Computed example of a mutant assay.
Amino acid sequence: ALSWISISFVVALGIGQYLGSIIQVALGWPAIFYLLGAVSLMMGLVVARVTFPVLAEENAPSSAWPSYWRILRHRAFLLPALTGGLGYGVIVAFNTAAPLILQGPFNWSAVEYGLLGWPISTAYFLGALAVNGFVLRTGQRGLMTAGVGLVLAGSAVMLLGSLAGTSVALLFWLPYCVAVLGQSLTYPISLSLANDGSPVGGAYAMALSGFIHQLMAAVIGGIASLIASPQAWPLSLLCTLLALGAMLCVMLAPGRKTS
Rank of each mutant, 00 (worst) to 15 (best):
L82R: 06
L82A: 09
T83C: 08
T83N: 03
G85Q: 04
L86M: 13
L86T: 07
G89M: 12
G89A: 11
V90I: 12
V92Y: 12
F94W: 15
N95Y: 14
N95A: 14
T96P: 13
P99C: 13
P99Q: 10
P99A: 11
L100D: 07
L102P: 11
L102W: 06
L102F: 10
G104I: 07
G104K: 00
P105K: 06
F106H: 07
N107T: 11
W108T: 10
W108Q: 11
S109Q: 10
S109P: 06
S109W: 10
V111A: 10
V111M: 14
E112W: 03
Y113P: 15
G114A: 13
L115I: 12
L116W: 12
G117N: 08
W118Y: 14
P119Y: 01
P119R: 01
S121G: 15
S121M: 15
A123G: 06
L126K: 05
G127T: 02
A130E: 13
A130D: 14
V131R: 08
V131A: 03
V131D: 04
F134L: 15
F134Y: 14
R137P: 01
G142S: 11
T145Y: 12
A146P: 13
G147K: 02
G147Q: 07
V148K: 04
V148C: 09
L150A: 09
V151D: 06
V151W: 02
A153G: 02
A153E: 01
G154T: 08
V157H: 03
V157N: 01
M158E: 08
M158A: 02
L159K: 02
G161Y: 05
G161L: 02
S162V: 10
S162T: 11
L163C: 09
G165P: 08
S167F: 05
V168F: 11
A169G: 03
L170W: 14
L174N: 00
L174G: 00
L174Q: 04
V178E: 00
G182F: 01
G182I: 00
Q183D: 03
Q183M: 07
Q183R: 00
L185H: 04
L185Q: 08
T186M: 00
T186C: 05
Y187H: 10
L191P: 10
L191A: 10
